[in-house]
Design a protein around this nucleic acid. Structure first.
Lengths: 206, 206
DNA sequence: TGATAAACGGAACATTGTTCCGTATTTGGA
DNA sequence: TCCAAATACGGAACAATGTTCCGTTTATCA
């Protein structure tokens, strides 16, 4: 979260840094497994840490939720750059859109928390957009310039469209289980996504 | 809630009936004042009743929320009939739409509960629509027949439109306070509503 | 290596939903 | 009118959870 800023008084203790990371990682796992409403204690235990430690870094439960969310937004946005480096533009675009779709699907539970009215989450939508829109815009532009995708699609529109697709296709809640209906819904979602991607890359417009 | 059905074994005890009503009334008040997340104890105390009494009638907190919601839907829908009896068709229509708008505004907190994924609330949207759509349809038809409103508007569309208007204009949460911004938003909402009503009654179409 | 600041862990506290049960009230019949 | 059974009542007690507190442990640095 916060780097070594020159002006900062003291270094962060090694164990503290290690634990902060462990907590974030545990929270990510637990949120995915048991939903965003999972008890703080469960996260602390998974991280192999006492609740006190967790609360020192994240004074409110919502702070932890926000931190995990931002961290995953960062990771997903960062993947855009990686994919752009490792693949031809059209392919990078396709892959990232699938990656993004997966992000949305796994954040379903969180999404409902966002609209819960808790002011703690007010900043998240902006964070979401300000990271994803440029990330996608770059992929889109590169693909368009290479003639590997149409150029008349707005990044934000696409983000929203896929977001809607994905939320419509997943059962509400945010747990992870092996619910078969859930899997069918997912398959359907990914099929629709592929349709959009194909349209984007090979559609009649240029 | 449940009437005297001939097949029923025993009569409901008088104090029980009285208390059920007191609880519903108290819940309505408390939800309006402190939001739908208000503690059960506060509702019980307001009703002048122990929590045990409350829980016998409403085994889950959500049961109480649902009951209050339905009761207010009933009340609002019933007002449509009353207004139709006491006013000329166009006027009845106007008045009821304002009444409905007020209903929506005060149920903002509840609305977010609806989309919380809790299956306890799954039946509410249907209840909402199946009561309000016919109620409005009647007013609309009567007004149209009397030449006091245009006839090309769908009842459900109108319900949704006003619903959106009202939710957009109110600050999230569902509390009641004297927040001045909230009041401004409300004024704006009602101004927009009046615009729609005027369009409905005096617009160019017949 | 030892002093000190920083961090740790988890018991303890506060709030809330829910259950339990001894007590009080209503009801229907004698 | 009065009694016994049925019913309902109230609120203490329990469980789950977020959050705070503080005695103990550990990392850092000279």
């Amino acid at each position: 979260m916060q780097e070594e800023i020159p002006g900062t008084k003291k270094r962060i203790r090694a164990d503290a840094a290690r634990n902060e990371d462990a907590v974030l990682e545990a929270a990510k796992t637990v949120f995915a497994t048991s939903g965003v409403d999972a008890p703080v204690r469960e996260i602390a235990k998974t991280a192999g840490v006492g609740v006190g430690t967790l609360y020192r870094r994240f004074p409110k439960r919502s702070d932890l939720v926000v931190a995990v969310f931002k961290r995953e937004v960062d990771a997903c946005a960062a993947d855009a750059k990686t994919l752009a480096k490792d693949h031809p533009p059209g392919e990078a675009l396709s892959r990232w859109l699938r990656r993004y779709c997966q992000f949305i699907v796994t954040k379903k539970g969180l999404a409902s928390a966002l609209h819960s009215g808790d002011p703690a989450f007010d900043a998240l939508p902006d964070y979401f957009r300000s990271n994803f829109e440029p990330a996608l815009q770059n992929l889109l532009s590169a693909a368009a310039k290479a003639g590997e995708a149409r150029s008349d699609i707005d990044a934000y529109d696409l983000l929203r469209a896929i977001g809607n697709l994905a939320s419509a296709g997943s059962t509400s809640g945010g747990k992870a289980g092996d619910d078969p209906e859930h899997h069918e819904g997912m398959q359907h979602t990914y099929r629709m996504l592929d349709l959009m991607i194909d349209g984007l890359r090979y559609g009649k417009s240029g």
